[in-house]
Simulated assay, not measured.
Amino acid sequence: MKKIILSIITMATLGFTSCKNEAKTNENSNDIAINATFGVRGNCGMCKTTIEKAAKSVEGVTYANWDVDKKTIELAFDDTKTTTETIHKAIAASGYDTESAVGVESAYDNLPGCCQYDHAMEMNQSGEEDHSGHSN
């Protein structure tokens, strides 16, 4: 009897673990319909976290992925709940410049030193190196 109960518990636990892993895999899959892509200035992994968190704080945003090399964010959102303009403003409020919104200066000043980017930095880069060794 103890072996049967232990087997049932083990199978149930494996089943839950499997579902959790599938959910994580699907969340990062290429099946996400991207509604918008635009440039956002930033430097590092900490910037990525802050930029994506700001975008996801907007009601209706279901996916945000900022590419540190390309200085570009991909977004999926419910366009009946928000607009790209609202997302631009949310990211700017966290201190980061976007293609259509300037980062809030006081928020920028409070970013860690590694996150204080060059305001003249190009956005929407290809991510490829040119012959001079600089990113495009």
Rank of each mutant, 00 (worst) to 15 (best):
T82P: 11
A55S: 07
D109L: 11
I51P: 00
T37A: 06
G39T: 03
Q125I: 15
G95Y: 06
G45T: 11
T80Q: 08
T62F: 09
T86S: 11
N35T: 12
Y63I: 00
A101E: 15
N43Y: 06
C114M: 12
E105D: 15
G113T: 10
G113W: 09
T50S: 13
V104R: 13
A90H: 10
A36H: 13
G113L: 04
E59L: 14
T62H: 12
T86C: 03
K81G: 10
A64S: 08
I51N: 07
T86F: 07
L75E: 02
N65H: 04
G45R: 02
P112T: 02
N65T: 02
N65P: 04
G127A: 12
K70I: 12
E85K: 15
A120V: 06
V40G: 00
R41F: 01
T83V: 11
E99G: 05
A33Q: 15
Q125M: 15
T49E: 12
A90K: 12
V102E: 14
T50G: 02
K48D: 08
A92V: 05
G127T: 09
Y96V: 09
G45A: 08
A64K: 00
C115M: 11
V102N: 13
K89T: 13
E105S: 14
Y96H: 07
V61I: 07
Q125P: 11
T62E: 12
W66L: 08
A54W: 06
Q125Y: 13
K48V: 02
G113M: 00
G45Q: 04
S57I: 09
D118E: 10
E105H: 08
G60P: 06
T98H: 06
M46H: 10
E105V: 15
D67W: 02
K53I: 09
E52G: 01
M123S: 08
I87Q: 05
C44Q: 09
S57F: 05
F38H: 05
D118P: 00
V58H: 07
D109F: 09
T86N: 11
V102C: 00
N124V: 13
I34P: 02
I91W: 09
S106E: 15
D118H: 08
A55R: 02
I32N: 12
N35H: 08
L75T: 07
T62G: 11
T82R: 11
Y96C: 01
H119T: 05
P112F: 03
T50V: 13
T37F: 01
E122V: 12
A120P: 09
A107N: 05
I87V: 14
D67M: 05
Y117G: 04
